[in-house]
């Protein structure tokens, strides 16, 4: 039997398929989000890689920003529960999840059973989200994925102190104009985003094991910064971008079994 989880984000789509024994058969991600053919693309790719067809799927759960408008699922569950589920499966003993997505940053607290106990999300402001790093990458004229490598070359600590992305943008531009090294600015951006999200984490209370998910977790420099901010080691979930989709697939199995 096959169970499909689809995570439809604002700027990317992810899918995961598992069997009835919770074996992970495939996880795929594409940088195309809701309102496009992104979800269909990742589902087709996932099916193809497993070598099955759509009608062989026993149950489908959709999650993420686009879950409500996605009509092909049997059930929709929020990304908060799905991230919790996925992490509990991948990292036994996890109690705190930090997820930085494109539009949202969230911190989730799991109880001893691996269920979601509490969660917090960033408010309107973009300063603590992936969007902030995108803005920084744009100013630094590099790709989002290059930020991590760039930041590692940083030799001098600079502070991007502003709470507001728009403010921070002008601050960074003036820093660059004054000859501050790009690498230092990249590291400054990492510090800035992590300090915002660390604030959220402190509000909910941090208990180890701490796990990071989401695309930003692939940025090693951000993860190291976050560890420094919160004072705990961080485990990056394997293939962090697709943890939500995996959680959705696990929910699909669970729901199917209950029926």
């Amino acid at each position: 039997m096959y169970f499909l989880g689809v995570d439809i984000g604002s700027s990317s789509s992810k899918a995961a398929i598992i069997d009835e024994n919770k074996n992970i058969l495939v996880r795929v991600a594409r940088n195309i989000g809701t309102g496009t053919n992104g979800p269909t693309l990742v589902i087709n790719q996932a099916l193809e890689e497993v070598g099955i067809t759509r009608d062989q799927i026993n149950f489908t759960v959709a999650t993420g920003y686009g879950r409500v408008t996605f009509t092909q699922a049997d059930k929709q569950i929020t990304e908060i529960s799905c991230h919790g589920k996925g992490v509990a499966h991948l990292v036994p003993g996890a109690h705190t999840i930090i997820d930085i997505g494109g539009q949202d940053a969230k911190v989730i607290r799991l109880n001893d059973k691996g269920n979601v106990d509490n969660f917090l999300m960033n408010e309107k402001c973009a300063a603590g989200t992936g969007r902030f790093l995108e803005v920084m990458a744009r100013i630094l004229n590099c790709g989002l994925e290059d930020l991590s490598g760039l930041a590692k070359e940083s030799t001098e600590e600079i502070e991007i102190s502003n709470t507001c992305t728009v403010f921070a943008e002008s601050e960074v531009i003036s820093q660059l104009a004054q000859g501050t090294a790009k690498a230092d600015v990249a590291q400054g951006a990492n510090n800035s985003i992590t300090s915002r999200v660390a604030g959220l984490a402190r509000r909910i209370g941090i208990t180890p094991v701490v796990v990071m998910t989401g695309g930003v977790a692939k940025n090693d420099a951000v993860v190291r910064c976050m560890e420094k901010q919160i004072g705990y080691d961080i485990t990056v979930a394997p293939d962090p971008q697709t943890v939500g989709a995996l959680g959705a697939a696990l929910f699909a199995l669970e729901t199917f079994n209950k029926k």
Binding site: Y65, V68, T78, I80, D117, M121
Partner: peptide
């Protein structure tokens, strides 16, 4: 945190749903 003139309540829907799930 809410404001009266919110353009979209999408994120709030997610939070309320997630809260109900917890």
């Amino acid at each position: 945190e809410i404001e009266q003139q919110m353009e979209s309540v999408g994120q709030y829907k997610t939070r309320i749903q997630a809260f109900a799930e917890t």
